[in-house]
Amino acid sequence: MRKLSGIIGIVFVLVFPGIVMAHAGLTIAYPNFYPFFIQKGDGKMTGFFYEIISEALDKRIGVAVHWRPMPWKRCQEEVRAGRYDAMVTVPTPERLTYCQTHEDPFYIKKMTLFTYAGHPDLDRIRTIGSVRDIKAMGYCVVTYSGNGWHNKHISSLGIPSWETSEVHNVWKMLAARRGDLVIEWPPGARLGMEKAGVTDKIIDTGITLESMPFHLMIHNGSGYTRILKRFNRTINDMAGDGTMTDILGAYGITSF
């Protein structure tokens, strides 16, 4: 009987790792994507999303946070299945079927249009003012797997896309002219291009198409949904007392 109980316990830990850790804190599934959040070689975490969440939950609310890295598509699958408590992302109707969130975004990410250097239609691309213009002009957009914003605003309109499983690879694909455009957040794009070694092959058009509000989203079945109202008050306090500005400034970001 003890042996059977032990086997059942091991299976439960493997299938529901987030639930097993629930007594010890909130477990967040996240993709390694600097400067938002990333685990360095020494195991330490960094990134401004990481610092904002840690300041609010660990330091101010008193909830320990455990970070679990995995590809973004899997993050969503694991949280949807209830195997981890939470993720940091943009609320969508589909995500809100299995998660709860707070009222105010803790960061608004502007989505800007990029193309490759030497694009024969560069002057025409610079006239784009909306996503529908991209469709009308017949351009192809490069993205990464699990990009909810892309699925909602680009794929849903039937705009052709190329997709990669790793976020930073979008810049290699664009530089290789596998598509015409990438729509991304400039500070993250700059770092992604540097990592891919293609900075001199990409052009930032300066055209902002959309803004993405980021939230902490917690699975409906997690006991930590109870902290969401307090989390909302805390992030607003952090904005008011200068903490947000200090955290973002350390990463060269001047607005939130």
Rank of each mutant, 00 (worst) to 15 (best):
R2S: 03
L4A: 09
V11Y: 03
F12K: 12
V13T: 09
V15S: 12
A22Q: 15
A22R: 11
H23K: 13
L26Q: 00
F33P: 03
P35Q: 00
P35G: 05
D42Q: 05
K44E: 08
G47E: 03
E51L: 06
E51R: 12
I52P: 02
D58E: 09
K59Y: 13
I61T: 06
P69V: 03
P69H: 02
P71H: 11
K73D: 07
R74F: 06
R74T: 14
E77K: 08
E78K: 06
V79C: 02
V79Y: 11
G82R: 09
A86G: 05
T89Q: 09
V90F: 06
P91I: 14
P93I: 02
E94H: 09
L96C: 07
T97Q: 14
T101D: 06
T101F: 03
E103N: 04
F106W: 03
F106E: 03
Y107P: 10
K110N: 11
M111W: 11
F114Q: 00
Y116R: 00
H119Q: 08
H119Y: 02
D121R: 13
D123T: 13
R124V: 01
I125M: 06
R126H: 05
I128V: 11
I128R: 14
G129W: 10
S130I: 06
V131F: 12
I134A: 03
I134G: 06
G138F: 12
Y144N: 04
G146K: 05
W149E: 15
W149K: 09
N151E: 15
K152P: 11
H153L: 08
I154Y: 04
S155Y: 10
G158K: 05
I159H: 02
P160T: 05
E163N: 07
T164I: 10
S165R: 15
E166K: 14
V167L: 14
H168N: 13
V170Q: 15
V170G: 04
W171C: 05
W171H: 10
M173G: 05
A175N: 03
A176N: 04
R178A: 12
G179Q: 01
D180T: 04
D180C: 04
D180V: 03
L181I: 10
L181K: 02
I183Q: 07
E184G: 08
P187F: 14
P187R: 10
G188W: 03
R190P: 01
R190Q: 10
L191S: 01
G192L: 02
M193F: 00
D200V: 08
K201P: 00
G206F: 05
T208Y: 12
L209Y: 02
M212A: 15
M212C: 15
M217I: 10
M217V: 04
H219P: 04
N220S: 05
S222Q: 02
S222A: 02
G223M: 11
I227K: 01
K229P: 08
R230S: 15
R230Y: 02
N236G: 10
M238E: 07
A239G: 12
G240Y: 01
D241S: 09
T245F: 13
G249V: 06
A250I: 04
Y251Q: 04
G252I: 08
I253A: 10
S255C: 12
